[in-house]
Design a protein around this nucleic acid. Structure first.
Lengths: 148, 148
DNA sequence: TAATAGTAGTTGTATTATACAACTTTATAG
DNA sequence: CTATAAAGTTGTATAATACAACTACTATTA
């Protein structure tokens, strides 16, 4: 591939990560990034335990355990015991949690909308799709890394 | 804008940040992300002090001071006093540092090249350009945030 | 069925990147 | 000359993470 495009991509990716990590660590709406992703996952996946959540999010169970506990504290999720297995729990998103998630999504979407105000419709759509595609391969890469 | 594209973009961006932060924190080559960006900046900007570096990188001076000290330790930069100002220093990238930077760039570019192996030339070019454009507005956003 | 191995989840500890605040040394303005 | 500002460093705090040790259960197996 053309070396110049590749180098642009390489540098801009590193830069993007730093900038956007800092921004999103400062919080967009009321949820931080980890809480946001956890709630999103719970919404998508339905009620699951920390093990499954950790697998989906590709994080350590201990990390997810703490994140879930924090959301429990806030009343955004509830932890119900698995009747089938005395060790296990299911986390359920609460009404309040669902509301917070939706608000957060809106806040983030609005911010992005504002940031990309001079992008064409087509550019945005395309960028979103490319990011999605990239995330898929990055996830695979992560899995490989953790497996071996 | 079309709500669906926006929501895709919104979620994929959050996901991208988490995935790629984790990956790049685990190091690609021999430099971590902060070291890489600092060396890159020094290469672009020439010899400057931590204040200017911090401004370019949009980080706190204390953060950059520590990062630069770490690179100094490794022999990737040298810190020379400003003959004009007894308080100030210039950080210079060393030959070793330049070599490490190049190797790192290569390692990262290779990784990206591999990850994007099924993307067309045009897609990559475009994605890089879009990321670059996005980074410009994100930087502005950061500046505003820090100013007010 | 009792003993052993494995599993879900939590908690302790360490690391890393960051910011903010206090400080030191030097420079500049009144 | 004194007071204020500026460059840089160091102390302290926070947040997200991983790994390791642990508890409490479950499953296997002899």
């Amino acid at each position: 591939m053309d070396r110049h495009s590749l180098e642009t991509l390489e540098y801009e990716m590193a830069l993007f990560v730093r900038i956007i990590s800092n921004i999103s660590d400062r919080k967009i709406g009321n949820l931080d990034r980890s809480a946001y992703l956890l709630l999103h996952q719970l919404m998508v996946q339905g009620a699951v335990g920390v093990k499954d959540l950790a697998a989906s999010l590709q994080l350590d169970v201990s990390t997810v355990s703490r994140q879930a506990a924090a959301l429990d504290q806030k009343g955004y999720v509830v932890k119900l015991p698995d009747p089938q297995d005395g060790r296990a729990y299911f986390y359920h998103i609460t009404e309040q949690g669902a509301k917070a998630l939706l608000e957060e999504k809106k806040a983030r979407a609005d911010m992005i909308d504002k940031l990309l105000s001079d992008w064409s419709e087509e550019e945005r759509r395309q960028f979103g799709e490319q990011l999605k595609k990239l995330n898929r391969v990055l996830k695979e890469y992560e899995e490989v890394k953790k497996g071996g």
